[in-house]
């Protein structure tokens, strides 16, 4: 997929770190703005089901989306709006899936963050997130069987997901097969309400990689510069054939698990600590300090992103919702293998 949504430099080669940083910031800003819009729609009762935000994880997320390129594979987690946009997911895919438009990629059959375009390398997650890693492995494995090289697959997961059997099986298999997998672990300190002290007992999640024979790095997930560098390097190493790479980012989820969750269990000390910094604010301050953008420019960008989000929502709100009488209630692509009784009316 290609970058087409937010950046005036779409398609252009990002030549300097300043440009790269600014571009990333703009995607983060769009993601945050869109997330805020979804939160508003949720509170207004306009969204069926849950809403899951990426607040506080945009720096890490956008770094993944930007490090990948057309032909790569991305299996995001539920807080990867920024990475999805940077990878090339149309803004309308997000809005249509949240609002259940039949014109979206999931057509009301699945919702919110359960969306993607598998043929374009963006995998639609199932809720058992650890299970997505093996699917990325499979695409990379298939490419290798066809002698296609230079492809990278990234899978995102949280601290909680690292406790699942699927995670263990898939990272081990990726290491055994030496696949160009980049595993992005967003350690946001809580899996729903469960703190990391109840999730794992190793000193740091990055230690797990050693046991699998996987290269690994940690990064401050609140620092966009660091995320761009570390994630970019991991993707580069995977692309060059150094096998699976794991990046563990320290950050704090600056929202509930979903918008239904007030998250009063989050330790106030964590919020005050460096890990609790808002990566978007940190990045904005950095832009100002470096003189890469002034306050007025950033305000203009903010208005631009609000407009994009408003336009997309306005468009989708006029689109049709699924109709149970028009729905094709068939779970197989092979029509002849559907049981005849299912085809009978009534």
């Amino acid at each position: 997929m290609v970058q087409t949504v937010a950046s005036p430099k779409a398609g252009a080669v990002v030549s300097t770190f300043r440009d790269e940083y600014t571009n990333a910031f703009r995607w983060m800003l769009l993601a945050r703005t869109l997330d805020d819009k979804f939160a508003g729609l949720y509170r207004a009762g306009k969204i069926h089901g849950g809403v899951f935000l990426g607040r506080g994880q945009e720096a890490l997320s956008v770094s993944v989306g930007l490090a990948l390129r057309k032909g790569d594979v991305f299996a995001p987690l539920i807080r990867d709006q920024a990475g999805r946009l940077a990878f090339g997911e149309p803004i309308l895919d997000a809005v249509r899936t949240y609002l259940g438009s039949t014109l979206g990629p999931m057509r009301g059959r699945d919702g919110n963050i359960h969306r993607g375009r598998p043929r374009e390398g963006l995998l639609p997650m199932i809720s058992h997130l650890g299970a997505m890693i093996a699917v990325v492995n499979g695409i990379l494995f298939a490419r290798r069987l066809r002698n296609i090289s230079g492809v990278v697959g990234a899978a995102s997961i949280g601290d909680g997901g690292t406790s699942t059997g699927s995670f263990h099986e898939a990272i081990n298999l990726a290491a055994v097969e030496k696949l160009p997998l980049v595993l992005i672990v967003a350690n946001n300190q809580y899996a729903y309400s469960t703190p990391t002290s109840r999730q794992f007992a190793c000193g740091d999640l990055v230690d797990k990689a050693i046991g699998y024979g996987v290269d690994s790095q940690t990064v401050d997930g609140t620092d966009l510069s660091a995320c761009l560098e570390v994630v970019g390097e991991a993707v580069k190493r995977a692309r060059e054939g150094h096998g699976p790479q794991m990046v563990v980012a320290r950050l704090l989820r600056l929202c509930g698990h979903g918008e239904h969750d007030v998250a009063d269990y989050v330790d106030p000390k964590l919020k005050q600590s460096p890990v609790g910094r808002d990566c978007l604010k940190v990045a904005e301050e950095h832009l100002l300090q470096q003189g890469w953008a002034d306050a007025r420019t950033i305000e203009l960008w903010r208005s631009e992103m609000v407009q994009k989000a408003e336009d997309a929502v306005a468009t989708v709100q006029r689109e049709p919702a699924p109709d149970p009488y028009e729905e094709d209630w068939r779970a197989l692509s092979s029509q002849r293998l559907l049981e005849a009784r299912e085809e009978r009316p009534g």
Partner: peptide, 27 residues
């Protein structure tokens, strides 16, 4: 190169097959 031993990881094995199928293979 087309009949390959896997680790003992049924979840990852089937997940791999699904990914390969998405990518046009017939595992």
């Amino acid at each position: 190169g087309r009949v390959i031993d896997s680790p003992i990881s049924e979840d990852a094995i089937i997940g791999l097959a699904i990914g390969a199928a998405i990518d046009g293979m017939r595992p």
